[in-house]
Design a protein around this nucleic acid. Structure first.
Lengths: 190, 190
DNA sequence: CGCGGGTTTGATGATGCTCAAGCCCGGTGG
DNA sequence: CCACCGGGCTTGAGCATCATCAAACCCGCG
């Protein structure tokens, strides 16, 4: 049904097939077309989203026109606007499919029931959050210690497949660069 | 014994005094003098640290000389190098007391036993991680949408007491600015 | 074949850094 | 009690990085 999520869960906790069947009751699956949104600015983010297949981006609108990407999520990643989710505030973000994607949504208000049925999943989510935090700490460190040029090169070296898969201007936006500058950097670095 | 930690836990879960006594067995308390480190570069970060009283900073050494601050932790905050903690890799960071502080350490390897004794604490830690993630998402958004000047002003407006408490050059470092530039900004913004 | 989104090019310029010097002020020793 | 020291903050000149803007180019798609 959603093998990638199950596989992901099994990386961190014991989780047998009957557990998976229970979990299934709580999950809503969404098939997104390219450019389709699963969250839009002004809505309250009510679910955690898992990318079962495909690729998402999270962005907000800057100066009324400019889409500023703050995160990507590939297959096997959780994504959401945690601030909106926690405080039930309108989100400032869009979450949009870059390509045809299959997204699994876990509603915030069902999660306590889910944990009551499958207590071990609370551990899974704790660990997922912990790892996301580690990733964000690492990313923030790179921002401190690298110039934008180094940051760009580091990124392209680290995720060459991803750079293929996604248009340059999105990479630029995510890295906080202008497309023009990225273009210059590409020329310079062969 | 450590009222601030208990108070913090009670913000998120039911936690009575006997639970607190159990927890106490797992906690190591450290009294730090000004400038004393609880973690140093090269060590493996083995504990989660809670600031019961005082104030910490987390930094790494840039270009062999320059202390680059990436995080502060005031009373009531958890702090650690999550990357080093998870992978048991040598840390690239120092965690140091800015002022006389009381720190509570929870060893990574005891935490599973602790959760076995007090299963509700797993929820507490999940929530703490979740909120830290929300905070880091918000911070990263500010970095995208503000100029350094706006970022500085926003920070000083948001945490005026903190700006009093900590030397300017540390604020500058945390915000990714030179002390000279902060000085210029202060003059400009009365 | 023409259109439109994405990328490139080049000129110009602002933001924010570097470096060197001076200043302020609280602490310490004579 | 004063003089000196040193850390932190400020000032100013010069400069690098990276953004802005306008235009041209490229190429896949209808």
């Amino acid at each position: 049904m959603f093998p990638n999520l199950i596989k992901h869960i099994r990386r961190f906790i014991e989780f047998d097939d009957t557990d998976a069947l229970v979990l299934m009751k709580y999950i809503q699956s969404h098939d997104l077309k390219r450019k389709e949104n699963i969250l839009e600015e002004g809505q309250i983010c009510r679910s955690y989203y898992f990318v079962e297949e495909g690729c998402l981006r999270m962005f907000f609108i800057n100066d009324k026109t400019n889409e500023q990407i703050t995160q990507f999520a590939l297959d096997g990643w959780w994504i959401c606007d945690y601030f909106s989710l926690i405080d039930e505030q309108p989100s400032a973000y869009y979450i949009q499919a870059i390509e045809k994607s299959k997204i699994l949504a876990l509603d915030k208000h069902l999660i306590d029931d889910l944990f009551r049925e499958l207590p071990l999943l609370e551990r899974y989510f704790r660990i997922v959050m912990l790892r996301a935090l580690a990733a964000s700490q690492l990313r923030s460190r790179y921002l401190y210690e690298m110039t934008k040029e180094e940051f760009y090169i580091h990124f392209t070296k680290s995720f060459p497949e991803f750079v293929q898969r996604v248009p340059q201007y999105m990479i630029a936006s995510y890295l906080g660069l202008t497309p023009e500058y990225v273009s210059e950097l590409r020329k310079k670095n062969l």
